[in-house]
Amino acid sequence: MKIKYSEAWCLKMADLELGNEVGAGVFGLAQNVAKDAEYPTMHSSTIPFGRFVKLMRRNKRLTIEKLAEDADIDLDELIEIEDNAGHVPEPRTVYQLAQFFEVPTNNLMQVAGLSSTRDERLVNESMKFAARSDTLAPLSPEEKAALEAFVSILGRK
């Protein structure tokens, strides 16, 4: 199809558009996220984040589907978070999970590798937590204790 753009219209709009972002469309679709291997990350591992989400979910006796629904996040991404250690979650997803699990967003962002601030203590505690928690077994008293201890650390400012 032929469109008649006048020079005056184009320049009027260009000057109006100057300094504005114009992108539209749903971004971060699962199919693209999975392919985005070159995506630069700020962390070495998101294992503690995945473990944390999985244990919190099991502790609340929620299925993956139910958590995705209740926290209003994509099911595909939740599965990636729990089972793919290399997956970098979307900021919005981490935000929603922080709200849902009632932990500070900033700290959870850091555990998820989405923050440029780096609190060494939180990093160490995250790795300890990941080492202590076994995601395959049913939630044992030890896991529960590990989870609760980690939640209390996350909750401290």
């Binding site: 184009c10 260009a14 109006l16 972002e21 114009v22 992108g23």
Partner: peptide, 30 residues
């Protein structure tokens, strides 16, 4: 409009460069 994107050198709010062209988004919406 399912997807609309301008070339990254035209991104306005990114750091590390000056945007090259203005008006691409308007031409597409038109």
């Amino acid at each position: 409009v399912d997807f609309l994107e301008v070339a990254p050198w035209n991104w306005k709010t990114s750091i590390g460069h000056s945007p090259r062209y203005a008006g691409v988004g308007s031409l597409l919406l038109r």
